[in-house]
Design a protein around this nucleic acid. Structure first.
Lengths: 219, 219
DNA sequence: ACCCTTAATAACGTATACGTTAATGTATGC
DNA sequence: GCATACATTAACGTATACGTTATTAAGGGT
């Protein structure tokens, strides 16, 4: 048997939020969403409640489900969190003494990013970048860090996709990734942490600056 | 007008989890909980779903709502997160140039901890300690950090209360707090960060060691 | 014309009903 | 005696019904 209606509602609503089909800041009644998804209000309500706990939507009486917009300040706050926790993960990964084989998935992500760069395919690059960061965090071995990074990555996913074509080609980013992975491989935790922190700080400045400069106040 | 049934269910169930009235690892059917709370299954279900998203319980078909136990590894993971994010908050707070007046609440918490120590009142100490950490994080000014620290503090709340009488009197802890607050007041972000990180690392070692040594594998 | 009162509406919060399904116990065949 | 098939049960998942309440619109008074 497949998944429950609630699970379906959750994954479909998440997709609708990420893709922008439900625009940032827009409101949607439970009954409407239930109709669109072909189910009753109950599973929609439960999914909305979960998404509220994940910080993706607000739920207000008689205003429906509201897709949380991301401001430049939100972006800065979230990248601060990602910066700290991912660089912690990098340090922990370095301490774990992984073999080259253990790091193969991360290596593949980097290769995919390189390939995407030469193809000038930003979407493929962003996808591989996402996978690299998730894998790095997984290698850190802290279940809570994995959770948090996944949640806050989701919160900025839509905003990041929208700014993707506005950013310079992320050539430096790929070098950063390689350096971090090297530090992990040779077991230099402090170096892995510092390199990754610098990498994320750069991303933070770039994105918040972009949002601010272009007046994209509510993504 | 009071709060909704769902909100009541949420706060009462949270209280039952924190106090241990619902023991770690125990299972509870929705219908039973609904009876105990004097309401129907619907609001209980919604509250349980929210608590699941907060990592306080698991919800499994035909096994009911299960209170998540905390292992030594969980404790270590969570303190790693708290360590990073609270010390980030300390650094950010230092950068903000707060006046002595702005830091009054934190100062009051430290004083309360001192008083609790001379009274040998561990419960009062723990409560003031909680408030100090929450205030520190608030001073950091990052809404996401505030959220995360609150959530993971909740996850270890019950376990921390249970180990409270087993710990040595936290004299050093009060000195640490003072030093961190001093660093914030003089605007030394790096020092505030490092001091707080050391403080949290000590707490981490103490608690995980305690759990491991006493064989308290599932708190 | 504007404001205040009031009625209509619609979305929600919650109770309830009911079909589904997994777990348990029982009976039957080997 | 053991395993397997079947019946029973109980908890859940989901639809639905309904009372509550905020919002909107209308109407009347100033």
């Amino acid at each position: 048997m497949g998944q429950s209606q609630t699970e379906q509602a959750l994954s479909r609503l998440r997709e609708m939020v990420f893709s922008g089909e439900l625009a940032a800041g827009s409101n949607h009644f439970e009954a409407d969403l239930a109709d669109r998804l072909g189910m009753s209000r109950t599973p929609v309500r439960e999914a909305a409640l979960t998404m509220k706990a994940q910080g993706l939507v607000d739920v207000q009486p008689r205003r429906g489900v509201r897709v949380c917009p991301i401001s430049a300040e939100d972006m800065a706050d979230i990248y601060d969190v990602l910066c700290e926790l991912e660089s912690l993960a990098a340090a922990r990964a370095a301490e774990r003494g992984y073999t080259a084989n253990d790091l193969q998935i991360a290596q593949n992500c980097i290769d995919a990013m390189d390939a995407a760069l030469t193809d000038n395919d930003r979407t493929a690059w962003a996808e591989a970048d996402d996978r690299f960061h998730a894998e790095l965090v997984r290698l850190g071995g802290n279940a809570r860090v994995i959770e948090i990074v996944a949640r806050y990555t989701d919160q900025v996913r839509r905003a990041r996709m929208m700014t993707l074509p506005l950013r310079p080609l992320p050539v430096k980013s790929n070098e950063d990734h390689r350096a971090v992975l090297d530090a992990i491989q040779i077991g230099d935790a402090a170096r892995a942490r510092d390199l990754h922190r610098a990498h994320r700080n750069a991303a933070r400045s770039l994105l918040t600056g972009l949002i601010r400069d272009l007046g994209l106040h509510r993504l």
